[in-house]
Amino acid sequence: MGVVGDVLSDGLGGLSHNVITGRIEDLVKWARSRSSWPASFGLACCAIEMMATGAAHYDISRFGMEVFRASPRQADIMIVAGRVSQKMAPVLRQVYDQMMEPKWVISMGVCASSGGMFNNYAIVQGVDQIVPVDVYAPGCPPTPETLIHAIETLHGLIESGEIMRRREVTGAGADVHVEEIPATSVPVLLGSS
């Protein structure tokens, strides 16, 4: 990365070089992890704690996540907060399918992770039967601290992972299918019209 001088007082003029170098992959991963918008998928008691995490005391916007999107198309992370019933399972899957790649899933609470104390006919015993889960947050309900820890863990995963992981290989996480465009040798000339 470039050498940065006193940016606060000098602005960009404080850069000793006006070019910053780095790997685009790092930049992409950094950007992704720092503004991952969650889809509001509140189901039960855990959803209340998820909302509490978004409120004043815990202030989830410190992690660039305060924008809970109602539309799955605009969301990056699905926080499955609460118990998933048999009736809800197809809906959950559909919302997941509607989310754009790359996407991640946090399974919040024991109910979402394993069915929790409700091992009965009505509850899906673990949401990972329906969607691939990246991080499990334990607890019933997980306190906002636990959720924040899960989010941090996920950020770590996003930043250390490949930007294009394939689910067939890893079995989890973002399912990005890009067509490889072979590099061409045609130079891009700047300044020529």
């Binding site: 399972a89 009965n120 006919y121 039967q129």
Partner: peptide, 20 residues
């Protein structure tokens, strides 16, 4: 009818209704 006494409580595999 789940609350009948002869209905098992145990967990059952997820049922999908034609979800992709």
């Amino acid at each position: 009818h789940p609350l009948r006494k002869d209905y098992e409580t145990g967990s059952i595999p997820v049922q999908f209704k034609g979800a992709p």
